[in-house]
Simulated assay, not measured.
Amino acid sequence: MIDYPFPIGKPSRKDFLRGAALTALLPLLPQISRAEAERIGVLEIAPGIFVHVGKYQLVNKANRGDISNPCCIVGSEAAAVIDTSGSFAMGSDLHAAIKQITDKPIRYVINTHMHPDHVMGNAAFKASNLEFVGHYKLPAALYARKESYLANARERLGEAAFKGTEIIPPTVLVKDTLELDLGRRVLTLKARPTAHTDNDLTIHDQPTGTFFLGDLLFSGHIPTLDGSIVGWLKLIPELMQEKAERAVPGHGPKSMTWPDAILPVQRYLTVLATDVRKMIKDGKTLEQAVATAAQSERDKWALFDEHNPRNVTAAYTELEWE
């Protein structure tokens, strides 16, 4: 069943307005059964909001880059896609699924950040008359990594899934806050300071109170650090002030309770920063830090051994200059 976002207890004026907006929108939204949603690989988490749940794996030929959570939001006039998965093949499957959900045109593809498992499916949407939207630092980040991203994707995905994959930069840039109207449904996009990356973008669906965080929120899958551990830890309390009925992680289940969902991420990053700072203070080398930092978190996360060494390296390189 869908968790409809009508508030419990005494509603505020904002709750009334949001409830009224959703009530007006509901008759205009697609009706799809759970069985049909599962058949086409998406799950409806709130009225008109659909999420495909990626696997807790590294990119490989078998999964075709299907390791993150792309989403679709449908309004009365148009739809928006949030992230497009990790290959042209996966992006094409997502596009086909959305066409089965709604006949509304896709007006926007929104990328939450630069990582290949979130942007490599963009090319599957480029023939449509739509805008690609991202953080104002996203074009430079993609340009700097374009050749390595494509080479790594070709090698890991294999030619069948990779064919057609290309880097598509945003045509609409978000420097602070931007609102996108899908018809009786307004999305609020916010460019965030450097944290998971230097180009993180969050999206808030006003009618349902659904908060899309991209890889600022991981669950089960260990967080990965490609920006600033100091910045991420500073940003988390600010994110927690956002009022939302549910959150959608970049990696994890289809939706989570907010703000409790981000507490394990905060814990892991705090442990990582504390351990690395102590090792730097004690004169330990980077190699020693990689071998021991944050090991108390090892049994709490999938893919720990694959990603924690890189996280330690990134944290050590940043914190040694404090």
Results as ranks from 00 to 15, higher is better:
3 D>W: 09
3 D>Y: 10
11 P>I: 08
15 D>L: 04
19 G>K: 01
22 L>E: 14
23 T>H: 11
24 A>M: 13
26 L>Y: 13
29 L>A: 10
30 P>A: 09
33 S>I: 06
35 A>K: 07
39 R>C: 05
41 G>L: 01
41 G>F: 00
46 A>M: 07
46 A>H: 05
48 G>P: 03
50 F>L: 08
51 V>F: 08
61 K>Y: 07
63 N>V: 02
65 G>Y: 13
67 I>T: 15
67 I>D: 03
68 S>F: 12
69 N>T: 09
70 P>D: 15
73 I>A: 11
75 G>N: 00
79 A>G: 06
83 D>Y: 01
85 S>A: 15
85 S>G: 10
86 G>T: 04
89 A>P: 03
92 S>N: 10
95 H>F: 11
99 K>Q: 13
100 Q>L: 11
104 K>Y: 01
106 I>T: 05
109 V>N: 00
111 N>M: 15
115 H>A: 10
116 P>Q: 15
120 M>Y: 14
123 A>M: 06
132 F>H: 12
134 G>F: 00
137 K>Q: 13
145 R>P: 04
146 K>Q: 13
148 S>N: 09
148 S>Y: 12
150 L>Q: 10
152 N>M: 08
152 N>G: 10
155 E>G: 08
157 L>G: 03
159 E>R: 10
162 F>Y: 12
164 G>C: 04
168 I>S: 13
170 P>S: 05
172 V>D: 12
174 V>G: 14
176 D>L: 01
177 T>M: 11
181 D>V: 00
181 D>L: 02
184 R>S: 12
186 V>W: 00
187 L>Q: 05
192 R>D: 06
194 T>N: 09
194 T>K: 14
205 D>V: 02
209 G>Q: 00
211 F>E: 07
212 F>I: 00
213 L>I: 04
218 F>Q: 02
221 H>Q: 07
223 P>A: 13
224 T>C: 11
224 T>H: 08
229 I>W: 05
238 E>L: 12
239 L>S: 02
241 Q>K: 02
242 E>M: 08
243 K>S: 15
247 A>E: 14
255 S>A: 12
255 S>R: 05
261 A>M: 01
268 Y>I: 00
269 L>K: 03
270 T>F: 12
271 V>G: 10
272 L>P: 01
278 K>D: 13
279 M>H: 00
280 I>P: 02
288 Q>C: 06
288 Q>R: 06
290 V>K: 14
294 A>W: 10
299 D>R: 04
309 P>I: 01
310 R>V: 08
310 R>F: 07
314 A>P: 03
319 L>A: 04
321 W>P: 00
322 E>L: 05
